[in-house]
Write a protein that binds this DNA or RNA. Structure first.
Length: 571
DNA sequence: GCCGTTTTCGGCCCGACTGTTTTCAGTCG
């Protein structure tokens, strides 16, 4: 039973409390679930040491339930609650405009207990006969079901970010000064629900007209004075909100979230005798304005430094901002080179020279080329001979193109933790990433030993995509990251933050754990084509969500410094 | 169920919108 599994059960408690109609208990369970999920360390050890109640949001009652879950795998009270409602009821609340109250009535009065039943009842016009429902709600439910079925997954950050930023820059280039993506996209979460754009303009009709005439727009879904939605050629929906310039900061703050973060800001506002909403910060007694034009003004009035959007997740950022202890987060400009790139020699699409030129154009000082090793047949891993021949080619290209081309390798970690090239081959390279690409199902202990052994090899500089997860496709493999981080810090091996859209591995929370343990991160895009080098922005966003600063990341070092880093770890 | 710069009891974020109502509950972000 790990943290995520326990958190899932607490979330289920929350869902069931919602059906019971107790929103305060629901909130309490949600908060506990989130804190368990993001807990730094294993819940089991909190349990063994009798300090479950030191987890925020966990009191006597929830601590007992967690203990019971750890001992027995479940909770008697949870079983009892489950027995009261059919399991499909929570799924009904995924349909827009159906919350717990309506879902429960549909169940009690029409016996509807899942999406299929709901669809049938709507088609049979049985729903409109219920008091409080009507023809329009029935139609809305049908549209909602369709949407849930079609669009249940979230978008990858890597898909949403270019789209959102393109719309943003289109509006800016056409004279809109106050414009930004908002929501989870602005916070650079690894997956995104909706693409939201906030505009501050005193000519709202013009801004709206501009938005709905976006060149890549296919249809206008909704066009109003403050809200509009369009669908793009690729099917993506983009929502726009227009507010007066004077309200821009307050509105952007509100629509950026996270919800938990803004709720906390409102609580603080109340304690200070204020009221915070999407129009601004006001005095409670006479409704007079305190701040609203810029996000910074509102934070300042609440006694806080401006919190970067990527940190607004209720993970300690409020305390840091009130104590003047916010980290100085990594910036894109700090990155001096990409350290994980594939060429045509293995499974990439661009040549060494093309990549060198593109890296130079991006302003990099160096680029690290890391083709696969032979055991990864599917990716045409290089023979030792071809790899060594390319070392000389890299030197030549470096000189001719005026940018340092570092010849590295992404060498496979074999089943027993040995590496896929002999040491004398690896020692001829500028640096080495070691990665797991096989036998993902190993038991945790075996996988951990395998990886630790690979990291102990003096030629290894970076552990590639340390958990192997693929967003929406594959779970992380089982590995004891605590031991991996300890080992990394002792051995002077960096852990990778891989920027490939499906990976983003390490993720935000693990980046932060690594930083707290003094482990350095190496950022690479895992590019297989020239345009993939742009994945760097996804990695930087994730790094910022993990509170990383410039000094935590090795590829902010100059060429000389990073060579020393690679030397030191291989010496 | 949790928690305390106002509290060990009594709060727990705020406003808009929608569809159904005739004064509002439920849902959403």
């Amino acid at each position: 039973m790990n943290n995520a599994e326990i958190a899932d059960l607490l979330h289920e408690f929350a869902d069931l409390m919602d059906l019971k109609g107790d929103i305060f208990k629901r909130n309490a369970y949600r908060r506990a679930a989130q804190n368990v999920q993001e807990l730094d360390g294993d819940v089991l050890s909190y349990y063994r040491e009798g300090r479950l109640e030191s987890i925020p949001g966990v009191g006597v009652s929830i601590a007992q339930k967690i203990a019971e879950i750890i001992r027995t795998g479940s909770s008697a009270e949870l079983e009892g609650l489950r027995a009261q409602y059919p399991p499909g009821l929570v799924e009904l609340t995924q349909v827009p405009d159906l919350g717990p109250k309506k879902a429960l009535r549909l169940y009690r009065e029409l016996g509807i207990k899942d999406l299929a039943g709901l669809k049938k009842a709507a088609l049979d016009h049985r729903i409109r006969r219920l008091e409080g429902f009507g023809r329009r709600s029935e139609e809305k439910i049908l549209r909602g079901i369709e949407m849930v079925e079609r669009n249940s997954g979230r978008m990858l950050l890597g898909d949403a970010l270019p789209i959102g930023l393109a719309v943003e820059s289109y509006l800016r280039q056409n004279g809109i000064e106050h414009v930004s993506v908002a929501g989870s996209l602005r916070r650079r979460k690894e997956t995104i629900g909706d693409i939201d754009i906030v505009v501050g303009s005193d000519l709202p009709l013009e801004a709206t007209r501009l938005f709905v005439s976006y060149p890549r727009r296919e249809t206008v879904i909704l066009q109003g004075p403050t809200r509009s939605s369009i669908r793009l050629e690729d099917g993506t929906q983009v929502d726009l909100r227009v507010v007066p310039v004077s309200d821009y900061g307050a509105t952007l703050l509100y629509f950026t979230g996270s919800k938990e973060h803004t709720v906390e800001l409102r609580r603080m506002a109340i304690q200070m005798g204020y009221k915070l909403n999407e129009y601004g910060l006001f005095r409670k007694d006479d409704n007079s304005l305190v701040a609203r034009e810029e996000e910074r003004d509102i934070y300042r009035a609440l006694g806080l430094d401006l919190i970067p959007p990527e940190m607004r997740e209720m993970r300690g950022e409020i305390e840091a901002a009130s104590g003047g202890r916010l980290p100085d987060l990594l910036r894109s400009e700090d990155i001096r080179g990409d350290l994980h790139v594939h060429t045509v020699m293995s499974d990439g699409h661009a040549t060494m020279r093309e990549l060198a030129r593109e890296a130079k154009r991006l302003g990099y000082e160096y680029i690290g080329l890391t083709d696969h090793s032979p055991s990864l047949r599917i990716a045409h891993g290089l023979t030792a001979e071809d790899l060594l021949d390319s070392v000389e080619e890299a030197r030549q290209v470096s000189e001719e193109e005026g940018i340092a081309v570092l010849r590295g390798s992404e060498v496979d970690i074999l089943d027993d933790g040995s590496l896929d090239y002999p040491r004398e081959v690896l020692s001829r390279l500028d640096f080495v990433i070691a990665s797991v690409h096989s036998r993902f199902q190993m038991p945790e202990e075996e996988m951990t030993e395998r990886v630790l052994r690979a990291m102990s090899d003096p030629e290894v500089n970076v552990l590639g995509h340390p958990t192997g997860r693929l967003l929406g496709r594959r779970e992380a493999y089982r590995i004891d990251l605590e031991r991996v981080m300890e080992h990394a810090s002792r051995q002077g091996v960096a852990l990778e933050l891989n920027g490939y859209p499906y990976r983003l591995d390490l993720n935000d929370l693990n980046c932060r754990r690594a930083k707290e343990r003094g482990v350095k991160l190496s950022i690479g895009t895992d590019a297989h084509a020239l345009e993939d080098l742009s994945f760097m922005s996804l990695a930087v966003g994730t790094a910022r969500r993990g509170w990383l600063e410039k000094d935590d990341v090795i590829n902010t070092l100059s060429l000389d410094q990073i060579k020393r880093f690679f030397e030191r770890t291989s010496g």
